[in-house]
Design a protein around this nucleic acid. Sequence first.
RNA 1: GUCCCCUUCGUCUAGAGGCCUAGGACAACUCCCUUUCACGGAGUAGACACCGAUUCGAAUUCGGUAGGGGACGCCA
Length: 484
Amino acid sequence: MSVRLRFAPSPTGHLHVGGARTALYNYLYAKKMGGQFILRIEDTDVERSTEAALKMQIEDLVWLGLKWDEGVDPKTHESFGPHGPYRQSLRKSIYQEHAQKLLQQGKTYYDFRTDEELDAIKQQAEADGGFHRTARPEKIYSLEEAQAKLAKGEKAAVRFRVDDIRDYKLHDLVRGEVSFPSDMVGDFVILRSNGMPVYNFCCVVDDALMKITHVLRAEEHLSNTLRQQMLYEAFGYPTPHFGHLSLVLGEDRQKLSKRHGATSCHEYMERGYLPDALLNFIALLGWGTTDDKEIFSRQELIDAFSLDRLNPAGAVFDETKLKWMNSIHLRAMEHKELWKLIDPRLKAHGIECPQDAEWVDRALGLFKTSMETLEDAIPRFQPIDDRLFSIKDDAAEVFTWESTKKVLEAWKLGLESAPDYMTGEDFEKLQNGIKDSVGVKGKNLFMPIRVAVIGQPHGAELKILVPLLHKKSLLNRVDQCLKK
RNA sequence: GUCCCCUUCGUCUAGAGGCCUAGGACAACUCCCUUUCACGGAGUAGACACCGAUUCGAAUUCGGUAGGGGACGCCA
């Protein structure tokens, strides 16, 4: 039987990098084993789940390239696959049926306490010694009594009885043998008073019905597994294999959250990171191989992935290393593909560049070694656009030097007989010629030329930049300088 | 408070009793290349949380301590 894994986000915002890593591991294992990867939407919290957020989550997964075999359609959000629907909000009747089964068996009961009452109980418990577990209500109504009350319009949640006091053992894929005492949790809610089921319940019903074989999820769910095991037993469903992944942490070793800065894949996309680099990086946050290999393509990750190398300790998300990894992936890209990502970013900054393949190829060849992210292209390419050329204030000193005018004139003269595009060597030859003919060297030589190319005395390396500028463009710029 | 999990260089990690005077990568630092930067190359520095036990021998096994994290919701 082939493996079936799922990623089950709740749509409350953009995809978090921790979530992305969970999705990735599930995806990798499914692909590695030739099984299915399923996307299920956990939108039972109607307060927080939004259509807009669902769209974001899906777009982020698509950007990462984690394609799913069953789930909701990336465009229409309609379910596809044999065990649908894949949105929990559309599976209410399925949950109702399952809840009824437990109710009939007496494994659950109706709890008529209100939020206020529960809050008061919790507050009291905290005051008494910080013990938070929700206690059983003083009176539990029989099914008939409860149904009569409900018929009168009273609201009640359905709770699962935790009566069987014993140790539950879990063979965790990441942590090995873990055991929980069942009195670690109190009677827990499976159906809210508005009829909407809650996470632990849906999760069990869906994983069982969707025939999920392995569940890789964040460590924060470890204690939920106890409740879920109780439900699996109550239904008589086989339990999947669980693996609880360590958390992704911020620099202060706390769970990565907003206050640490960028936490969503979307933000990393905006900052100019490549999906392959981000994937490669998060894959190595809590998983690794025995060899020294660190740069993985998507396919290499699939081939190399294995559950027994998942690390139980939390891992700090270090953007510096991500940056380095991004630069490696960036350089490995085909120039044509890379340009498809860079050019729109330049245009967004009002930078227009030549589009012929030969020029693009040359430009990327020269610039990409100094770029870590796609955003780094902006300062690199900015000097290319003639319309953006201007003589900056910090060039003023250069124009006070006596030799500057002579250098600029010699530069112009040299340009006139130069080819449309000079090579780096052409440029050096020309520059050396000026050094000899005008008789200046050092900054008196370099700075005026740099100003005549980029409008300021410091910045781009001319040997790289000049070959990317058309002769006409260079002449235009030096003319502007000579008018000063 | 209760329960659960975790603990190797600053960070990600390799390490499954002798291969470890603990390996790699990022970052840092030094030097080389380079008439700025970057890339590249060569180096330097830097860790087994602590205490006991088992063993001829422990980063690796066991126990305890400390520290960190997570959970304790009609959130997921």
